[in-house]
C-alpha cells in the first residue's frame, strides 16, 4: 500500500475546521458539565434526603445507559415531547449531562474525603451543612479533584466524536466527509487519531499547570 501524502496535505487544513468545532462543543459542554457536576456532587453530600435521591437517580441513569443512546434521546426523542435543539446544542446537552454525572461522583468523593474535623469546625461556628460544603470543604477539595476531573474532561472531549452521528460537523465528521469523497481511510483516520491525541495532550498539559498553580498547605 502507498501512503498518500497528497490527501494528507489536502485534508489537514480542512480538518482544522473540525478541530475548531470539536473544541467549541467540548468547551461549552465542559463548562456546563462542571457546573452540573459540582452542584450535583455537593447536593449528594447535603443533608437533604430527596436531593440526594434525585442525584443518585441521575448518576445511575447516566452510568447505566450508553452515551450514544443519551445523544439519540436528546436529539431524536426530546423533540417528540416538544423540546428541540440544534445539532450543536443537542450535542452540548448530551455531553454535559453525561459528564456532569461522572464529575458529580468525583466531587462527592473528594469533598467528602476532606477530614471530618473540618466540617465539625464549620458546624462549631454555626454553619449549616450547606455552608460548610461551600465555604470550608469544597475550597479544600479543588487540588485533589484535578486529576480525576481531567480524566472526565478528556473523556468528554473524546466522546464529542460521537456527535458525528447527529451531524455535528466536528473533527470525526469532517474526517468522514473527506473519506467519503477521497476514499483514504488509512490516511484520514490516522490523521484524526493524531489530531485527537494533540488535543488531549494539550488538555493534560493545561491540567498539570493548573494543579501546580493551585495552593497547597
Amino acid at each position: 500500500m502507498i501512503f498518500d501524502w497528497n490527501v494528507v496535505t489536502y485534508a489537514a487544513p480542512l480538518l482544522a475546521h473540525g478541530v475548531v468545532m470539536t473544541l467549541q462543543v467540548s468547551a461549552v459542554a465542559a463548562v456546563l458539565a462542571l457546573v452540573i457536576g459540582i452542584v450535583a456532587g455537593l447536593a449528594s453530600l447535603s443533608a437533604s434526603h430527596p436531593l440526594r435521591g434525585v442525584v443518585r437517580l441521575y448518576v445511575e441513569f447516566v452510568r447505566g445507559t450508553p452515551l450514544l443512546i443519551q445523544i439519540f434521546l436528546v436529539f431524536f426523542a426530546l423533540p417528540v415531547v416538544g423540546v428541540r435543539f440544534s445539532e450543536f446544542w443537542a450535542g452540548v446537552v448530551a455531553l454535559s449531562f453525561n459528564a456532569g454525572a461522572y464529575i458529580s461522583e468525583v466531587v462527592r468523593g473528594t469533598v467528602g474525603a476532606v477530614e471530618k474535623g473540618q466540617s465539625e469546625a464549620a458546624m462549631s461556628i454555626g454553619m449549616t451543612r450547606q455552608g460548610a460544603l461551600i465555604w470550608v470543604l469544597l475550597p479544600q477539595a479543588w487540588r485533589p479533584m484535578i486529576p480525576a476531573l481531567t480524566n472526565d474532561l478528556i473523556t468528554l472531549t473524546k466522546n464529542s466524536s460521537l456527535l458525528s452521528v447527529i451531524s455535528v460537523y466536528e473533527l470525526t465528521r469532517a474526517g468522514q466527509a473527506i473519506i467519503a469523497t477521497h476514499f483514504a481511510p488509512f490516511e484520514i483516520y490516522l490523521l484524526l487519531a493524531l489530531y485527537y491525541w494533540g488535543l488531549i495532550s494539550a488538555l493534560a498539559w493545561a491540567s498539570r499547570r493548573i494543579e501546580k498553580a493551585l495552593p497547597q498547605w
Binding site: 474535623g117 473540618q118 465539625e120 462549631s124 461556628i125 454555626g126 475550597p139 479544600q140 498547605w217
Partner: peptide
Amino acid sequence: ARQRTLFGFVFQRFNLFPH
C-alpha cells in the same frame, strides 16, 4: 446551627481551616 453559636468550641486538634 444558629443556636450552636451560643457555644464556642475548641478542638483537641485545632481543626483550623488549612486553606
